[in-house]
Design a protein around this nucleic acid. Structure first.
Lengths: 164, 164, 164, 164
DNA sequence: TTTT
DNA sequence: TTTT
């Protein structure tokens, strides 16, 4: 009961911190990437304004591994993916929703992004394998764990206000 | 401190209900549109799966007026816009985030979508006027701002159930 | 010597005529689709203008078969693909170039597009199979290759009038 | 007599040569940019293949001026625009068609692209002004002039095979 | 809550 | 050659 459609996101931005890589019990990699895009526009009185938007990007499998090897805080990257809103429960049992971009393509830009990477030769396929079910491993995963929460420690010299 | 970038969303889907239109104190229209896209994929055992994703789409100004006149529950529409995550406080004073697609272009599809519309002659420009500051009227813009925290006034008559 | 990149085309338009389907010697389907998009803009004196653009869209394999079954003249469709410029020689031996959109995704819109189709049950996957090399079968693939130069065999029964 | 639609191109690639800037009699700038994108794919026998595609990109007005100032051979750039096929006559009076991407947005990538530019501070608006009729100045423009043609002189150390 |  |  659904009529298809298109759900596409295209981002070009910079990483707010190094990617975080985890592995599912099946051994599939999952990468969380924090990406900033900035929009410049002219305000009501003609003054230049800018507004930075932070995006949660999730990658799976081969794409996640590549992100883990080659992307670093500050890397500029092109991401293509789809919007996905996950439901989870906070500590009070309230439903919460988090919207992420599930990436299915990535291009490192600027010749940069390397520096921390393995640097190994090219030859890698930048698309997620098609035989991989890209649904994020439900359960636990993204939900904040037990007590205290914890302040983000990743925003030191890149940005002071990453919300995620 | 920001290096530009690209923040683009492209959706083709169907409205889950009629658009909701409000007006800012400046008389600018704001439309909230609830859009479904469905993804079909093959699960691990090869069985057909499908997953519907719901998107919050916000439109301003001329585009919001067109949405209010021509879109109805079930209308199929092409939307282009950008991702924007708004921060707000829930009743317990906790930070909450809601991600929306701020539309800047729209195409009605399927010859449909009409039926409830004014039907008046064509001639309308489907793009947001370029002299319009598409930033949602931040705080103040008619906001009652009464009691402690609570939903952002943007949402008060749109959402009464979580999430969309 | 090439640094990757992104080459993406997104079209929503109507078919100018029924798709034309051929088969390679390997039995892979190839569809040629002629798609119109119309742009409305305001001219220098503020008058409404419109301009129709015609696009050559090429599909392969499963996607081509779906196009052949379900698309008809007038069908509204969403196409995603990449730009590809083919070189060929005209009858005078001069190099000529033709730019096409090689589709890798398709969505039929408007509930329409049917009418001529087989109508058979759903369940089809609208993406090109990932194990298919989407490069058009270069030279040979059934080409008669008769006389001197001339239109590439790809085009022989699609085009009889220039350009589309 | 036309039903709208979407005609969108998104490219991320590198310039094959410096942009060429001309001015219309109205003083509006027109830039021609030659952009390479490379696709990597796996061939029938599993071997890595790559294919470079060259795109003709045209920019007008403010966007063209920015291109002229900041882009150079080798610059990496994000381009968003629409497909447009122009008709012209060759020296034998035959109709010829050239497909171009008419850009309406641009983002310089990699922190690079500078080097030859004026380097002046930011603050520029990367979108084409909305009051500009983006139809390319018809007549002459793209058609190859009189005798001799002339070999391209731009492919020295970047690429040997730019077709345009 | 949509749609095929 | 499409479509509204």
């Amino acid at each position: 009961m659904a009529s298809g459609g298109v759900n596409k996101v295209i981002l070009v931005g910079n990483l707010g911190r190094d990617p975080e890589i985890r592995y599912t019990t099946n051994g599939n990699a999952v990468a969380n990437v924090n990406l900033a895009t900035t929009r410049r526009y002219r305000g009501r009185e003609g003054q230049q304004q800018e507004e930075t938007e932070w995006h949660r990007v999730v990658m799976f499998s081969r794409l996640a591994e590549i992100a883990g090897e080659y992307l670093r805080k500050g890397s500029q990257v092109y991401i293509e993916g789809r919007l996905q809103t996950r439901k989870w429960q906070d500590n009070n049992g309230n439903d919460r929703y988090t919207t992420e971009v599930v990436a299915n393509e990535m291009q490192m830009l600027g010749g940069g992004g390397s520096g921390g990477g393995r640097g190994g030769g090219g030859g890698w396929d930048q698309s997620a394998p098609s035989d991989f079910d890209q649904t994020p491993p439900q359960g636990g995963g993204g939900s904040p764990g037990g007590g205290g929460g914890g302040q983000p420690d990743f925003d030191q010299d890149f940005e002071d206000d990453i919300p995620f």
